[in-house]
Amino acid sequence: MIVFYLIPIETGLMTAITDPSAYTGSAPYLPPAPGDVSLGPFTNAVDALSQGLANSFILVVPATILSGLLGSMAAYGLTTVDWKGQIGIYMLFVAGIFIPYQAVLVPLTQFWYNVVPLRTTVESVAPMIPLLQEFHWKLIALIVTHTAYGIPICTLLFRAHYKKLSDEMVEAARLDGASITRIYRRIILPLSVPMFAVVFIYQFTQIWNDLLFALTIIQFGDASVVTQDLVSIGVSQEGTNFPLRMAAALVAALPTLLVYIFFGDKFAKGVTA
């Protein structure tokens, strides 16, 4: 079973360390002959993807944190704080999960390119702020889009978690004199850590692997994220450079893998909590 699951990765890895010139004719799943081992594909892949990787990080980190944080706040407001009409609002959030990506692609493009003057704003302030590039406006648009799309599912996850928290504990905090925001900061937020791990892993993977929104909003250019660059890498008229493509795929997958490794134990705690 394990062998069955690992063969594709093994094959990818073996291919990725084969010298491209020696690739044709060798079995992709067998280790390359000692003379044909090459780290060239990896270094080439990292070189080619560096801009995409950087853009992806600029996109993923804020979008993940924002959607997690806003989802947690929304869930707190909709679950732990008691007010009329919250079920209705919550239903709107849930409905958000079911809006298909395809249905919003055109409106989304219109929105970011024609309705919101984000481009002109960023282009005018970019020279004044260090590190901010003009093309970053597309990444900002993508961050907002992913955050908005992520909030419903994050709210759902956090709400399930908050429903299990003791009402008496929150009431005790109220009697202790804590305001709604203080209760969130000092009681609810610290108790949400395992759930944040779940949400962060989930959102990180989703956003990192997303190609559809990136193609729609970024389209092409300097702001391209890693998934976009991956599409065309190693493809040329002379043929396909499989070792390079495999190496690039592994490099692009590495961050999500690392996130799983680093947050894995907290993730398990959050899922079972």
């Binding site: 003791s166 008496e168 504990m169 009431e171 005790a172 905090a173 109220r174 009697l175 202790d176 004199g177 804590a178 305001s179 009681i187 610290p190 108790l191």
Partner: peptide, 20 residues
């Protein structure tokens, strides 16, 4: 008056301690 301003302390059945 909100609970905080009543100067009352309550002990709950579940103790309601802050676990973290």
């Amino acid at each position: 008056k909100p609970p905080a301003e009543r100067n009352i302390a309550m002990v709950f059945q579940s103790y309601a301690l802050y676990p973290h």
